[in-house]
């Protein structure tokens, strides 16, 4: 077992309000790890602390044994990132954004086959701004995979994708996992989590309330489906929802 992502005692608060409280977790090589929780539970803060785009108040993050802050340039040769929102310059074409991204790395995968695998075949000339929400999402997964990374972070991986595109993304990620890619993802879709994740961590108000395999989550909560198990673990039980209605 080789730890690839190591988060140790991460704490972060915004204006005195804690967003993340003492989160520690380790992801091994070749694992698909899912970080779950309702909006505002601290998923994006965790991803950002892991990537060094936010400095945690306490604790530290290492990826491939490197610090994302002090060893940024070495580390990010090997790490692909897809943020929850798409960030791109105005009036840029799909092909240009891919070419620009590829040029930043020592080695990069050929663009055209990757685009084709994610349903963007022949879209190189199209403006990124004119793509549909799902196509943009797919494009940013492509951008994360272009550097042929050994670790990839995917924040809200398939939000906005249609069913067929989601299945295609799952298949592709499963294949990359077999080749040794380590995947850290956040998701709101429990069918996706069940299909992909080796292990999960459930956050509730910035605290980890469960870490383990999908099977362990089902056993612990006496649920048959991951969605029920998740709602139970995240403290959003069906009963609670009904009462509030």
């Amino acid at each position: 077992m080789e730890p690839v992502i190591q988060l140790e005692h991460l704490c972060k608060s915004y204006g005195g309000v804690p967003a993340l409280q003492d989160l520690s977790l380790t992801v091994q090589r070749g694992e698909i790890f899912g970080l779950l929780g309702p909006n505002g539970a601290g998923k994006s803060t965790t991803v950002e602390c892991a990537l060094g785009t936010r400095q945690p108040d306490k604790g530290q993050a290492h990826i491939l044994g490197l610090s994302p802050i002090t060893q940024r340039k070495v580390l990010f040769q090997q790490v692909g990132v897809q943020f929850q929102e798409a960030y791109y310059p105005e009036k840029i074409r799909v092909g240009e954004l891919c070419e620009m991204t590829s040029s930043l790395y020592k080695t990069a995968a050929p663009t055209a086959p990757l685009l084709a695998q994610f349903g963007l075949k022949g879209k190189e000339k199209q403006m990124v701004g004119d793509l549909s929400g799902g196509q943009k999402q797919a494009l940013f997964i492509v951008l994360a995979l272009l550097p042929m990374p050994s670790v990839v972070f995917l924040d809200e991986l398939t939000t906005g994708l249609d069913t067929r595109a989601r299945r295609a993304v799952w298949r592709h990620l499963a294949k990359l996992k077999e080749q040794g890619l380590t995947i850290f993802l956040t998701s709101h879709f429990m069918d996706e989590v069940e299909a992909l994740c080796d292990r999960i961590c459930v956050l509730q108000k910035g605290r980890p309330v469960f870490t383990g395999t999908v099977q362990q989550a089902l056993t612990q909560t006496h649920c048959a489906h991951m969605e029920d198990a998740y709602l139970c673990l995240a403290g959003e039980t069906q009963e609670g929802q009904d009462e509030s209605i």
Binding site: T53, F76, Q77, V79, E85, Y87, Y88, P89, L104
Partner: peptide
């Protein structure tokens, strides 16, 4: 503008400076 549109944030997670 690149900072505001978080394009620089994306660049920050690449090996560029």
């Amino acid at each position: 503008g690149y900072r505001q549109k978080k394009i620089l944030k994306r660049f920050r997670t690449t090996p560029t400076g």
